[in-house]
């Protein structure tokens, strides 16, 4: 089976280079982490995948088809996205969850919505709760359910745990694994946290100054003693996180 997403030589500059010839692939049902420090271009790269950002050059293919040839609204239903800080709409949890199908002129069956809500670990009776009264962790789960209601093939996660407390981080990480393994959605997740990458222990891209400096399982990358840039990156980050910056 071919790759679900293929990223080919993406480059982008805002005066200075933000992305430099970035290429990678995501398999159907795959889980890929993009690891890098703040300002390394991780979020911009993610936004290029669903065309919220246009690259200067390069292409993104979905099932071998250039995403620029796909109607952008259709593309975004297939390539869902959850942002760092959830921006829910005013109204109930249910109102938020039905948005995706409603924007496409469809009605989501009530039982599907309830199933989705319990799937992200929230009780059915929360459907009638005002979204503004939820904790950030609960709002982030609703944002997951909102994106999943479109039944996407792939979910882009832009540091979805960075605004959460440590307990909520672990709960959400379990949810991400569930979405990937049980709901069988491919996931591309951006993080700056090496410890989090280690907990997922999956295929990881290390992005530095807009350039991929390494690919592979994160533990292998950490154990790599031959690449000086990579070694310096991990040593620096681990020391930084050890000083309380990480989780």
């Amino acid at each position: 089976m071919g790759p679900l997403l293929t990223v080919q030589n993406l480059s982008l500059s805002f005066g200075k280079p933000v992305l430099q010839s970035v290429s990678f692939e995501v398999a159907p049902g795959g889980l890929l982490l993009i690891l890098g420090p703040s300002g390394s271009g991780k979020s911009t790269l993610l936004r290029c995948l669903n065309r919220l950002q246009a690259p200067d050059s390069g292409a993104v293919l979905l099932n071998d088809r250039d995403t620029r040839e796909i109607d952008v609204r259709h593309l975004r239903r297939r390539v869902g996205m959850v942002f760092q800080v959830p921006a829910l709409l005013p109204g109930t949890v249910e109102h938020n969850m039905i948005q995706g199908p409603a924007l496409a002129g469809k009605t989501a069956p009530r039982q599907d919505i309830e199933h989705l809500l319990t799937g992200v670990g929230l009780a059915r009776d929360m459907l009638t709760r005002n979204a503004a009264t939820l904790s950030i962790g609960e709002q982030q789960r609703v944002a997951f359910a909102q994106a999943l209601a479109n039944q996407p093939d792939v979910l882009l996660l832009d540091e979805p745990t960075s605004a959460l407390d440590p307990t909520a981080v672990l709960t959400l990480e379990k949810l991400i694994l569930k979405v990937n393994r049980e709901m069988n959605r491919a996931v591309v997740m951006v993080t700056h946290n090496i410890e989090q990458a280690l907990r997922f222990n999956t295929e990881t891209l290390v992005l530095l100054d807009g350039r991929i400096i390494a690919k592979g399982p994160v533990q292998d990358l950490i154990n790599n003693r031959t690449d000086a840039t990579l070694r310096s990156f991990f040593e620096g980050r681990l020391n930084h996180e050890g000083n309380g910056d990480g989780i």
Binding site: H74, G80, Q99, L103
Partner: peptide, 16 residues
């Protein structure tokens, strides 16, 4: 701005 991006990311049109 953030809600607008959320709606666009959910497949909404600019008008929506």
């Amino acid at each position: 701005r953030k809600r607008i991006e959320t709606l666009l990311a959910l497949g909404g049109s600019a008008r929506q």
